[in-house]
Design a protein around this nucleic acid. Structure first.
Length: 912
RNA sequence: AGGCCCGUAGCUCAGUUGGUUAGAGCGCUUCCCUGACACGGAAGAGGUCGAUGGUUCGAGUCCAUUCGGGCCUACCA
């Protein structure tokens, strides 16, 4: 039966089918009662705010590669999918959508707004799930989780209540980061700093009952309306006499005290600083020390409020302008200088954050951090309840941050999220924190309760993800089997936001680390090095690219660039090369099946050549000997398997990709297939059968080896090869094992030798411009008996690979080194006899260059070897190696020099 | 202010404990549309590893300084 195989790989025709198949068959449903070592991994839940971007693609590719690889090696594997409700981001998206429809979300009311967000969540979350299925992720879809689901919300309440009971959560009125655009408090981490060119305004404050002025310098003149004092350093001779006096606050017509505090930096500005406790963190602390008034002069959306007197109603930046003008008019503006400072922006809205006094919920971090620091610090291989952080420098970063950790603002003035489980009694103001909605106040019994209107920071629930998703606080079968999870893979930019907090919460609540290893991968950047951003239009769309190049190509491309520690710059060029690789494999398969059709006409069935039991015993021998090239291929396969295992074991995805690429393209396609082509068609039925068996066995193993990197293509091709009864998917197949009997150093060496000869001969051909199809005669000579035998034994293949009519092996003394083009190495000489004359000039240039290179290497080695200190200190192995190479290089150089001399002689002869 | 990372072929990047003429992909040059593949084959050209100084028998690989680029943390108005 003739097989129909498209000439080029068309991922669009194949991927959707397998993506659907994997989900429909529920192949990756985890079974906690199944045997085997456990590999469990929870997804970093994507935000339900839109669709997957390239960063997710990288993250999911790495996770899925490792999940598939473990599963194929017999691990009881769980890859748990899910999504994050992403409070502030999602709320912003929906608020914007409503605004576009002319709707003010506040007018909608909380309940209706929440309903709209849930609707959006269904849509957007659906998109993400669809995409994840499209790209073939081997998740256990039956265990999908959502941070705001009723189940996980219960866990959040439990955790909140426990922390509150333990005194680790408290409510306090403090100066916090406030976003006037999002209208909520932010944690320190949600404030991003940006260096901006600004000014330092020097403002003269008249000192009461004197004719003096005290000049203060400020970057934010508008806050002066809330000034409560002017502070100078107690030791500052310039101002000592003013301490205890009062300053007249311009524009506001108020008196404020002049105080002394060591916090003041005498070097900065004028050495006198205006103190605005309600609008600056330093001033807030200072205000507390000196019991100053906290005068808030702004509204929640950063307009000046009634305390700002005549400036009320102006935006803070308008007010700044106006105030500067007014000061100037009154002659109180001494000067304006340029000043660059890092200003805080809201991570989401990029609005300038306004420090503001506000009552919020906080989580005490020191006690939670201590064991989380220890778990990372104390890590060593094999140690229980400790965490390995990779790469190493992220570990240091983590420890630094954790050692300087500050309390975490966990409340948010949002409507989308976990509402804080705290109720205020309207009778006696008592706060009741409870797991279930309380009916009455815990102290006075009043039923007049009102729940806190705030929600929790999204990361509060994300921090629980590794155990909340597995059923904690119940000791479920999943929890018992899959917690702690084996590994966390995420991008390094959420190390503090998420990873650190998971470690703290995990240890605190379960007594165990949430994951044994955390691998932090790089970010995908644009060509110009920026983070990809959809809003800036600099992001590449993974769905469109997957469509165009194939998901396999995308995965392979990302993997091949995912070297730990370096950010990835993705380009379409690289995707093209990955797609070409997929096509190469496709065509190798095409070659197999097209030729198999011919072979089967001889009566042998595919099953007999490629059935699973047949493959298991490969490589096969002909007449008691495994053909050299087959032995070589299996040896190379074994090496490659070891390289891939080693690479994946250490998160070196790029090395795994490179090893497979080199094997499949270089070894399997370029050399092996070319070598065995005639064997496959051999009239000798035994030889042909063996060739086919070995070919299929190697091919099938190579497919399994490649599968974690390119799941779709390999699944498709794997189904073309006969598989065991009931075997449903390559994804459930066995990852190839580097069998001891495949290893064969001699075969590796011998084929490398032959490859060198073939390349030398091809090189001569190219130089002589021999037509690619034209067979020419060649001579070969060596003084090494074993090489001569090797060449003799493989002459047929060699002749074919180098397109020769005949390869004569001649004794050294009869080798004609005078005419024709030749190549010499330390161990052999080869030449092609061809009527075309050699371009002596080009040949000499080449020889000279080669000689020069050798000369340099020889000199440096001779120098080293002649050095007594080197000989006495360098390891024996290095010295021996150096000596051997030196001898070789000398031999080779001698040959080349002789050849050059001959050519010179020849040209002189021709010249005279 | 403190910390981290990067600077290797035209481009994008590998190069694990210092050791023998520094690798890959893309691009480039020449030849070839040969019955798996032009998304291909064959053969080539091309870096002395940002700079300087040091440690060492030996450094892209360790140390110091320096220049250039990036990132993170940080309450100097």
């Amino acid at each position: 039966m003739a097989r129909e195989i498209a000439k080029a790989y068309e991922p669009q025709q194949i991927e959707p089918r397998w993506a659907e198949f994997w989900v429909k068959e529920a192949l990756f449903k985890a079974d906690p009662s199944a045997p085997g070592p456990v590999f469990s991994i929870v997804i970093p839940p994507p935000n339900v705010t839109g669709s997957l971007h390239i960063g997710h693609m990288l993250n999911h590719t790495e996770i899925d590669i490792l999940a598939r690889w473990h599963r194929m090696r017999g691990y009881n594997t769980l890859y748990l999918p899910g999504m994050d409700h992403a409070g502030i981001s999602t709320q912003r998206v929906v608020v914007r959508q409503l605004k576009e429809q002319g709707i003010d979300y506040r007018k909608l009311g909380r309940e209706e707004f929440e309903r709209r967000v849930w609707k959006w969540k269904e849509e957007s979350g659906g998109t993400i799930l669809r995409q994840m299925r499209q790209i073939g992720e081997t998740c256990d879809w039956s265990r999908e989780r959502f941070t705001l689901s009723p189940e996980l919300s219960r866990v959040v309440r439990e955790v909140f209540a426990r922390l509150y009971e333990e005194g680790l959560i408290y409510r306090a009125t403090q100066l916090v980061n406030w976003c006037p655009d999002c209208l909520t408090v932010l944690s320190d981490l949600e404030v991003v700093h940006e260096e901006r060119q600004g000014n330092l305004w020097h403002i003269k404050y008249p000192v009461v009952e004197t004719k003096e002025f005290l000049t203060v310098a400020t970057t934010r003149p508008e806050t002066m309306l809330g000034d409560a004092a002017v502070a100078v350093h107690p030791e500052d001779e310039r101002y000592k006499h003013l301490v205890g006096k009062k300053a007249w606050l311009p524009l506001m017509n108020r008196e404020i005290p002049i105080i002394a505090d060591e916090m003041v930096d005498r070097e900065f500005g004028t050495g006198a600083v205006k103190v605005t406790p309600a609008h600056d963190p330093n001033d807030f602390a200072l205000g507390k020390r000196h019991k100053l008034a906290e005068i808030d002069v702004m509204t929640d959306d950063a307009q000046m409020n009634a305390n700002a007197d005549t400036y009320a109603g102006l935006g803070r930046f308008e007010a700044r302008k106006k105030i500067v003008e007014d000061l100037k008019a009154q002659g109180l503006l001494e000067k304006i200088t340029e000043h660059t400072s890092a200003i805080g922006l809201c991570e989401r809205s990029k609005t300038v954050v306004e420090p503001r006094i506000s009552t919020q919920w906080f989580c005490k971090m020191k006690d939670l951090a201590a064991p989380a620091i220890k778990a990372v610090e104390a890590y060593e291989p094999g140690k229980e309840n400790a965490i390995l952080v990779i790469p190493e420098n992220r570990r240091t970063e983590y420890l630094n941050w954790m050692n300087n950790i500050r309390d975490w603002t966990i409340s948010r003035q949002l409507w989308w999220g976990h509402r804080i489980p705290a109720w205020y009694c309207k009778e006696n103001q008592h706060i009741t924190v409870a797991r279930e909605t309380p009916l009455k106040c815990a102290t006075c019994g009043s039923a007049n309760l009102e729940q806190d209107s705030d929600v929790l920071d999204t990361w509060f629930s994300s921090a629980l993800w590794p155990f909340s998703t597995l059923g904690w606080p119940e000791k479920t079968a999943d929890y018992k089997k899959y917690y702690p999870t084996s590994l966390l893979i995420t991008a390094y930019d959420i190390l503090f936001f998420w990873v650190a907090r998971m470690i703290m919460m995990g240890i605190h609540f379960t007594g165990q680390v949430p994951f044994r290893t955390v691998y932090l991968h790089s970010l995908v950047r644009t060509g110009s090095g920026e983070k990809m951003s959809k809003s800036k239009g600099t992001g590449l769309d993974p769905v469109a690219l997957n469509q165009q190049y194939g998901t396999d190509a995308m995965r392979f491309c990302l993997a091949s660039m995912a070297a730990p520690g370096t950010d990835i710059v993705l380009s379409e060029d690289k995707l093209t090369s990955a797609r070409n690789f997929a096509n190469k494999i496709w065509n190798a398969a095409r070659f197999l099946f097209v030729n198999l059709d011919k072979f089967e006409q001889g009566g042998t069935k595919l099953e007999e050549l490629a059935g699973p039991e047949v493959r298991a015993k490969a490589p096969y021998a002909v007449g008691g000997r495994i053909p050299l090239v087959d032995a070589w291929l299996f040896a190379r396969l074994a090496t490659t398997i070891e390289m891939v295992n080693e690479a994946l074991d250490t998160y070196r995805f790029h090395e795994a990709a490179q090893a497979v690429y080199q094997f499949f393209w270089g070894d399997f396609c370029d050399w092996y297939i070319e070598w065995v082509k005639p064997e496959l068609q051999s009239a000798d039925r035994e030889r042909a059968t063996v060739a086919w068996k070995n070919l299929f066995a190697a091919f099938d193993a190579a497919l399994r080896l490649l599968h974690p990197l390119m799941p779709f293509l390999t699944e498709e091709l794997w189904h073309q090869v006969p598989q065991a009864k009931g075997a449903k998917s390559i994804a459930l197949g066995k990852f190839p094992v580097a069998e001891a009997r495949w290893k064969n150093a001699d075969a590796l060496h011998d084929v490398a030798q032959i490859q060198e000869v073939v390349t030398a001969l091809r090189s001569i051909r190219a130089e002589l411009r021999v037509d690619a199809k034209k067979k020419v005669a060649a001579e070969f000579s060596t003084s090494d008996r074993s090489i001569a035998n090797l060449i003799q034994a493989n002459r047929e293949a060699l002749e074919r690979l180098a397109v020769l009519s005949e390869l004569r092996i001649v004794p050294k003394e009869r080798f004609d080194a005078q005419s024709g083009a030749l190549r010499s190495t330390a161990t052999f000489d080869a030449r092609v006899t061809y009527s075309e004359t050699v371009d002596a000039g080009a040949e000499k240039t080449r020889l000279k260059k080669e000689i020069k290179g050798l000369q340099k290497a020889i000199i440096s080695k001779e120098k080293q070897l002649g050095d007594e200190t080197f000989r006495s200190r360098a390891p024996e192995k290095i010295i021996k190696g150096l000596e051997a190479t030196l001898a070789q290089q000398k031999t080779e150089q001698d040959k080349l020099l002789k050849r050059l001399g001959d050519l010179d002689g020849g040209s002189q002869a021709a010249g005279t």
